[in-house]
Nucleic acid binder design. Structure first.
Lengths: 334, 334
DNA sequence: ATGAAAGCGCTAACAT
DNA sequence: ATGTTAGCGCTTTCAT
């Protein structure tokens, strides 16, 4: 084990601990000759420092905690990747927590992150209401931003997609492509993304004169199987839509599968769109038309907001930073 | 900020810090009445403990670092998920590091994890040789196991797939399904998985009398595009194989795409297999026959090996625990 | 059963 | 430019 401490190095170099500390953190000028001696001593002993002791003293851990509903959802994987990249660039590290779509687990993860004294928390809350208390409590203890999904906690920053604009892009595209009647498949209304996207769908359907078919809004969850099931129902209906708008790509991929297996041609007889532009959307057949989110920029913004709030401040305005997606046209629409 | 310390609680409860500590960690019996008083004081103050201070004192952080070549590769995503699950069950947390396929980044991540005094490290080394030094150095400082990929570092434990058995399963399946000539698409030979799978492919091709076509081993990387490209070459050759064995599912999905786009029917004219059973393998058309890895069991085993080696021990035997995959038959083979 | 006190390894005043 | 010293908040002997 690495039991080499700063005082071992100090002794070997014949200087004080403080001098070694200064050399290692290049915080203050140190004599050239002394610095060389210290560095050599550190090398010879294989000194690597103790981040725990430093953290206790400086009250900074250079770590950020991230809590997502499911890391297996490719969109969150991308978000995690973007965060890890952004943090790495700043010499920080990421505690990754998967809340398994469970508010209780989520609350526990948040508590644990705070006990570990992370410098900040990025969370995508599982549930509209059930996540609120834990998020609020956490935000009082440590800088916290919400990413993608959000709960209503005054004074908390949020970064995510401009859901209204997202639906506008999709609906306009479908209108241009000749769609007349539409349906919407999404998850249960227990998270913020769903609610806003559905609202946008309704609004733009009305504005653009796209008719929503009977029972044209289907709620399930963000999964391929859920999309598959919803599509079978919609396609079997007498009032079959000629476009199905999906709240995310997983659902859309399920819809595509159902269409294929029930012999409905895409995009000629049915157009399909998703949201997120997960990697596999370009690999399915037909390739999926979807909306790409700028996850790298979102992660950078999340970090920026995290460091702005230097500590226990509250009553901050509660910034809401939304990014417009970009339409990625592929073969599932005309 | 949460500035409530153990001595605040002690003062409020009218006891010593030691007693509060005992109550919080339920380490020793404490009088019933005193315990109640302490708990109440802690609640009232919103005391949550300081994991950093505790870690400094106990020399345990209850954290594990994990370094993977790319978290965007769905197989590693699954592995990370399995590890996160296993750790969560033990009240530990995961530092996630993505080495971006770069040995230099990997070395830096490892160094950083050690400085943060993680209790253990799980690493899937990027490169056969270039990762070796950093892995060896790290293993000297902290309990370390290799997962999936490995470098040759004596005395280091490894958990992964039984690659020979894997290839055996695939090849026997193809033989039964009537394949005669085969090709193998994999990544460059700079990681352990590739080398072993190729070796297994060659051996079982010979044993089962499956002919390897001319230029029948194609090296690229673990990606859809790489598989696509390799397949176009193989399918254009005069000596076209009637089965393409792929070293992972991403490659196989690329092969399927190339086959579709060049009008080669799968599985009737060409059979295709992958390895890993990533989620999307069941969603492509035709669904991919592949090998499933027991990632949950692997993660559990990794943790077990981590805690066995209680500290600075070395000269351990260097356990190699390999798990047999299971064949998942789908539509890309007959 | 409880308290007093030492100290984990480091950094940051404050001296010199 | 460098050294001395006092903690950061906690756990853990060692007393009582």
């Amino acid at each position: 084990m690495n039991a080499v401490t700063i005082s071992d190095v100090a002794a070997r170099a014949g200087v004080s601990q403080a001098t070694v500390s200064r050399v290692m953190s290049s915080s203050r000028r140190v004599g050239r000759e002394v610095e060389a001696r210290v560095r050599r001593a550190a090398d010879e002993l294989g000194y690597s420092g103790n981040g725990i002791a430093r953290a206790l003293r400086t009250r900074r851990t250079d770590t950020v905690g991230m809590v997502v509903p499911s890391i297996l959802n490719p969109f969150f994987t991308t978000l995690v990747d973007s965060m890890e990249n952004a943090l790495h660039a700043e010499g920080k590290q990421l505690f990754l927590c998967d809340s398994r779509q469970d508010p209780a687990v989520e609350a526990e993860q948040l508590r644990s992150l705070i006990e570990r004294h992370v410098d900040g928390i990025v969370v995508s809350p599982v549930h509209d209401t059930e996540s609120a208390a834990a998020v609020a409590r956490s935000a009082r203890a440590v800088p916290l931003v919400q990413l993608d999904r959000r709960v209503d906690v005054p004074g908390t920053d949020w970064i995510g997609l401009d859901d209204a604009e997202a639906m506008k892009l999709v609906m306009e595209h479908l209108k241009e492509a000749g769609a007349r009647s539409v349906a919407f498949v999404t998850s249960e209304l227990t998270n913020s993304s769903t609610a806003l996207r559905l609202e946008g769908f309704r609004r733009w359907a009305a504005d653009l004169g796209l008719r929503i078919v009977d029972d044209g809004v289907v709620l399930g969850d963000f999964s391929v199987d859920s999309g598959d099931e919803a599509a079978r129902r919609l396609l079997a209906s007498p009032d079959r839509p000629d476009a199905i708008v999906c709240a995310d790509d997983l659902i859309a991929i399920g819809v595509l599968r159902a269409a294929r297996e029930t012999g409905v041609a895409v995009p000629s007889a049915l157009q399909v769109t998703g949201v997120d532009d997960i990697v596999f959307s370009s690999y399915v057949t037909p390739a999926l038309t979807t909306l790409a989110q700028p996850t790298d920029r979102m992660a950078a913004e999340a970090l920026r907001l995290l460091s702005l709030r230097g500590g226990a401040d509250e009553g901050g305005a509660g910034a809401r930073v939304s990014f417009a997606p970009t339409l990625v046209r592929r073969q599932s629409t005309r």
